[in-house]
């Protein structure tokens, strides 16, 4: 426990060392950092989707009229635009998430590490399968 805490000394004042303060807008300085922040921001649109979903559940529960109003609300240009943006971000989330999986999880098979490409590929295949199944459930009427 004490191991890391000792290093807080690092932040002590040392008049001869020059320190650069990290700008509040550090994530604008390099493209990879901006991409990182956009990836993190995608979570806001994940939450936005939950809000839309909850509104849908509430409308369904309240009856056909309420549901028609909900469907109408979805057609308001601002909401469409918002959903379009959200679509971009949740897709971005999915892609970055799948691409990073082999970093976070080492899968071994017969003593050998499964190649990154295979893990990523499996993820994408599963994504397609899950999407098809969910769409089938929603559209089979």
């Amino acid at each position: 426990m004490s191991g890391v805490r000792q290093t807080v000394r690092y932040t002590e004042y040392h008049p001869r060392w020059y320190r650069t303060r990290v700008s509040t807008w550090w994530w604008l300085s390099r493209w990879p950092y901006l991409k990182f922040i956009l990836r993190e921001i995608s979570s806001v649109f994940v939450a936005w989707f939950v809000v839309v979903l909850l509104l849908q559940i509430r409308a369904l529960s309240r009856g056909p009229q309420a549901y028609a109003a909900f469907e109408h609300w979805l057609q308001i240009p601002v909401i469409v635009l918002l959903n379009l943006t959200a679509m971009f971000f949740v897709t971005f989330h999915a892609v970055t998430w799948f691409n990073l999986t082999p970093r976070a999880m080492v899968v071994r098979f017969g003593g050998k590490r499964v190649p990154d490409g295979l893990i990523v590929g499996t993820n994408y295949a599963a994504w397609a399968a899950v999407s098809v199944v969910l769409a089938w459930f929603l559209l089979r009427s």
């Binding site: 890391v4 805490r5 290093t7 807080v8 690092y10 932040t11 990290v22 550090w26 994530w27 950092y33 990182f36």
Partner: peptide
């Protein structure tokens, strides 16, 4: 690592 830059206690 921006996390280290922002918070130097990060190991």
């Amino acid at each position: 690592c921006p996390v280290y830059g922002l918070d130097p206690v990060f190991i």
